[in-house]
Each structure stands twice: as C-alpha cells, then as structure tokens.
Design a protein around this nucleic acid. Structure first.
Lengths: 136, 136
DNA sequence: GCAAAAAAAGGTATTTTTATCCTTTATTTT
DNA sequence: AAAATAAAGGATAAAAATACCTTTTTTTGC
C-alpha cells in the first residue's frame, strides 16, 4: 500500500507532532532512533517533506525538525501524496489500468470502500491533530 | 498492497476461470497477451501457482494451463499467500512491528476493517466462483 | 523415431526501492 | 573569527522486484 519511505514519513511526522511543545527541535538521529529506522534514509525523506513545506527545519547547533503553525494544518494525505504520489489511493488493487466503478476489477467493490475510508481519514486528520498522542 | 506478481497471478487465474469449459488449454502467451503483462514474467508466476497446486498444466503441443476440479475449490486468498506470503494481510500499514489492536498505530483502526473485509472476500471467493465472468 | 510445440527450469539483466557515504552549506555557540 | 552542529545535497551501493533469455523436459502428431 504505502512504500517504506511513506511509512517512515508518516511516523516521523507523528513523532514531531507528539513532541511539539518541547522547546528543543528533534534531530534526524533522535527521530531515527525513536522509530528504529535507518538514519540517512530518513534524512532524505525529511528533506523532501521540508522542501514541500510539510515540516520545518533549522540548521546548526540546537537545530533539527519541528512543526510550525502552517505545518500542523496540513492533512496527512499530503504526506502520502508528496512521498508516494497523488495516485496512490486511486490505483486498482489488481493493477488494471481500466479499473473503475464502470469497469470494476473482480476485487473493486471490496477494495473501494477500504480505500475511500482511508482517504477520508487521511484527509480529515491533520498533522496537528496527532499532538498529545492522539490517533486519527 | 499486492506485488505485481500477485496482481498478475490473480488476474491470470481469473482468466483461466473465465475460460474454463473451453476444450483447449490456455498457453502463457495467450494469457499474457490477454492481460497485457510480460510473458516470461507471467510464466514464472504460473509455474509457482502450478507447483503449489493452485492451477494445473500440461506440457507439449496443445498443452497449457487449466483449472481442475481441485483447483476450483481453493479460495483466492491462497494465491495471495503463495505469491506474496502469508503475512500480507496482517502487516501494519505503517510498518510498525508492534502494531496490534492492543498497541495500534495511528491508522490501525481505519485500516483494520479494510484488511479484514478484503481477507473475508478472498477467503470466501474460490477460484471456481470466478467462472462465467462473476466477481467476488 | 523424429520434429514441433509448450511448459519447466535455471540463469542473466534491468529497474525500482531502500540504504549508505561523503561533501557542502547554513547556523549557532564559544 | 573559529569551532561545532545539523540539515541539504550529490553520488554511490545494496537489495528487492520485475523482466528477459536459453536450455531442458515432456507431449503430440506425423
């Protein structure tokens, strides 16, 4: 469903949300250790998120990543779209290019609801809403 | 969600089901062209399915793949398990090793229902039930 | 028996994804 | 100003997934 990059991205953002309010920023090293994921790989992902203004960063001593007041308003869906592409939640589960409600694949109806449920959760749930250990 | 191998596998089996009753067997070439997927890659997948007794095959002229009376009773879930592994429908959507109902990841509850819906469809729907162009 | 057909099997090649390394740039502290 | 810190960026490496090619085995029809 989601690539590892995307999984790491969502989890990293959740980490930032949970630690928002702390005065100090979270460095790649800290996040990677907390999530138990490869540090340099995560660094790339955080760069991408930062470039797309989904998270914020400061360089230098005491620097790291954090969420500003704009970041918290973005829905989680944007993370997915930035990392895995906008089509992730539209793709046919059997990879048929022609799959749609009009020309459903044999699993279409079973998967469609699932996908839309996820999409709506990811659209509704903002990055900020993950603060204080809340779920989506 | 499913690897391409698995997507091709399910679609190929569906093709066999739809063409069951025809007196002639379906060759790799025929199936690959019908599904618009790489022939040699599909050949490997069909081999695997055959080795696991999910489909049947005969070599030589007039040979090819078909479904026998045992094959038709297997649920589609077995295809998924053979190709992508038994854990496919249990894995956490965010890749957290510890994710469970007791320790849910932040998308757990939204994804859980989806996964179980799919699992139940794939368990209920046998290969044979795809004959006559039926869906799951 | 022989030639052709078609799957089985094994190996190789390509592409994509995941992961690491190393240098540069920006910032902060001393 | 110098040193330390941490992200940014570029290039490379390793692994996995996908795709292709060649040979072998089996079967069929002549």
């Amino acid at each position: 469903m989601f690539s590892k990059s995307c999984q790491y991205a969502i989890r990293a953002v959740a980490y930032l949300a949970e630690h928002k309010g702390t005065d100090k920023n979270a460095g790649v090293k800290e996040i990677a250790e907390a999530l138990q994921v490869p540090q340099q790989f995560l660094a790339k992902i955080l760069q991408t998120l930062s470039r797309h203004n989904l998270i914020s960063s400061v360089k230098g001593p005491g620097g790291g990543f954090y969420l500003d007041e704009t970041n918290v308003n973005a829905p989680l869906l944007e993370i997915v779209e930035v990392i895995d592409g906008k089509n992730t939640l539209n793709a046919c589960i059997l990879g048929k290019p022609t799959c749609s409600s009009e020309h459903p694949c044999l699993l279409h109806q079973h998967f469609h609801g699932c996908r839309e449920g996820l999409r709506s959760a990811l659209s509704t749930c903002t990055i900020g809403s993950l603060m204080d250990g809340k779920s989506c």
